[in-house]
Computed example of a mutant assay.
Amino acid sequence: MTEQRYGPQIGTDWVRDPGLFKEAERQPDAYFAQELRVFDLPLASRGTDFQRGVWQALTGVLYATTTSYGAIAADLGRPSASRAVGMANGRNPVSIVIPCHRVVGANGSLTGYGGGLPRKQRLLDMERRNTEGISSPRWSSAATRSP
């Protein structure tokens, strides 16, 4: 998303590896073709320990499900840090791969998304449509979370 406020920062130690980029191109394409539900890419996201903890938690939110900022804060042992979770979520350097679009308000409402709320809604709708008729998302070993 070119218009997001906090895009990935490229470190001075970065070295291009065409082999890695091939997979980094294939997996998002497969996700949008509704053929992939869990990304498997090596990531070296830069951020604070708390931000990286939030981003790690986001990778456990199953395809076509949602969680809340408060639930992530509680999972991290910081139940009063839902606002900080939201800020870390907004600084996610690799949206879609780290599925920050699956985080909603405590009441299930759509709240903040670097790519805009209409895009967040489209992503959630796409994932839900892709699981219609399936009793549970079976593509990840991560625990299901709900708002």
Rank of each mutant, 00 (worst) to 15 (best):
V85C: 01
I72Q: 04
T66A: 09
R145L: 12
M126G: 07
S135V: 11
P79S: 01
E127R: 12
C100H: 03
A143P: 00
S146T: 05
T66Y: 06
G116R: 06
L76D: 00
Q121F: 09
N92G: 08
I98K: 03
G105S: 05
V103C: 02
R138K: 12
R78L: 05
C100G: 13
L117F: 06
R138A: 15
A81I: 01
R91L: 09
N107E: 13
G86T: 04
A88V: 03
G115C: 10
G133E: 13
H101I: 10
T144K: 13
A106P: 00
S141T: 07
A88C: 05
R119D: 09
D75H: 04
G108K: 05
R102F: 07
K120I: 09
E127Q: 15
G114N: 10
W139A: 10
V104G: 02
S68H: 02
R138E: 14
G114R: 12
Q121M: 11
L123C: 07
T67C: 11
S80K: 13
W139Q: 12
L123E: 09
P79L: 06
A88N: 02
V97G: 06
G133R: 12
L124G: 10
E127K: 12
R145F: 05
A74G: 03
I134Q: 15
G70Q: 07
A88G: 01
S95V: 08
I98M: 08
G114L: 12
M87R: 08
R119M: 14
S141I: 06
G115R: 11
C100L: 08
S135W: 07
A143R: 02
R129T: 07
G86E: 01
A64V: 04
R102A: 10
G105N: 05
S135P: 02
A64D: 05
G77I: 04
L76A: 06
A71W: 00
R128Q: 15
P118C: 14
W139N: 14
N130R: 11
H101D: 07
A143M: 02
H101T: 09
G70R: 07
G114V: 13
G105Q: 03
L76G: 06
P137N: 15
A143D: 01
G70I: 03
I72Y: 06
G133T: 12
R91K: 11
R78M: 03
T65M: 09
G86M: 04
D75T: 00
E132H: 14
